[in-house]
């Protein structure tokens, strides 16, 4: 394999493919063959003859053995050096925030929390539909309305009726959003202080609802007109609380708050790796 390039490099010469004019002749022939279509058939003929002779010449270059030339090697020392011989390390102070808890939740717990919360927020939403509009489809259609064709200025009865597109779109939107929020939550969890229930259960839903309240007029005006923000907030908080509860009941892992922010971010760098390895070793010993 790769015979002519990589063999015999220990001697004073190296085999390299020999220069050849056949490829350029063939290329010129191919071009002329096509150029004949816009000029003159004779040019095509000339091109075909050239291309064929190029192909034959090329063929003879590689068969039965690829032609090569020997290039003499003159050995010279190349010094590989740098102007910056030293490398800085990220210094991790040992006493950094040692008083904080040293346990947190794995990334996957966020996804589990997202799924659980997504399921848990359905009952309050449905309940709202039943109480306010006597239809379980009302909140579903509000969410899925964007995907239902011809949905302009719907009446309340319209929204309360069953539309299979609405259900489908609502399920997709709901599932994607819950999973993503859960994933984001899980990814950032190890970086942030604990109290997932306070953060994810109360604070995040309130912020999220506020953000939606201000942008919903553009994102989905039908939803904006028909939405009951109180119930919306309840659903969101349900999501947050359940997600937080699920996360809180996952088994904890140790990478935690005694470390500086850069390590909680999961940054990979030589100095920190050593630190982390030694941390796990200590952990093993302590157990």
């Amino acid at each position: 394999m790769n015979e002519e390039q990589h063999s015999g490099s220990h001697s004073e010469t190296i085999h390299l493919p020999a220069p050849t004019a056949w490829p350029i002749i063939m290329a010129f022939g191919v071009m002329l063959a096509f150029a004949g279509m816009v000029t003159n058939f004779g040019i095509s003929l000339l091109g075909i003859v050239l291309a064929l002779s190029g192909a034959i010449g090329w063929f003879r270059q590689v068969l039965p053995h690829e032609a090569h030339e020997d290039i003499p090697v003159v050995v010279e020392n190349i010094i590989i050096t740098t102007t910056r011989p030293e490398v800085a390390r990220i210094i991790v102070p040992e006493d950094d925030r040692a008083h904080l808890p040293v346990e947190t939740y794995p990334v996957l717990s966020g996804i589990k929390g997202g799924i659980a919360g997504g399921i848990a927020m359905i009952p309050p939403a449905i309940l709202y539909g039943l109480i306010a509009q006597h239809s379980i489809w009302y909140p579903v259609n509000l969410l899925g309305g964007a995907g239902v064709a011809n949905w302009r200025n719907p009446s309340t009865a319209d929204i309360a009726a069953f539309h299979w597109q609405g259900v489908l779109v609502a399920i997709v939107i709901h599932a994607i959003t819950c999973l993503l929020v859960g994933l984001l939550y899980g990814a950032m969890l190890p970086m942030l202080p604990r109290r997932p229930i306070l953060l994810g259960g109360i604070l995040a839903p309130v912020l999220w609802t506020g953000l939606l309240h201000s942008t919903m007029g553009v994102v989905n005006p039908e939803l904006d007109q028909h939405i009951a923000w109180g119930w919306f907030l309840i659903s969101q908080v349900t999501f947050g609380l359940v997600a937080g509860w699920v996360v809180a009941h996952q088994s904890r892992i140790r990478t935690a708050q005694s470390l500086p922010f850069i390590m909680r971010m999961g940054i990979e760098t030589p100095g920190l790796v050593r630190e982390r390895e030694s941390a796990t070793e200590n952990e093993d010993e302590s157990r």
């Binding site: 020392n77 190349i78 010094i79 011989p85």
Partner: peptide
């Protein structure tokens, strides 16, 4: 080509021709 120490720099060595 064992590495030749160069003052102030880390290093390695290679063979090439001019």
């Amino acid at each position: 080509n064992p590495a030749v120490p160069i003052a102030g720099g880390a290093h390695g060595a290679l063979d090439v021709t001019p």
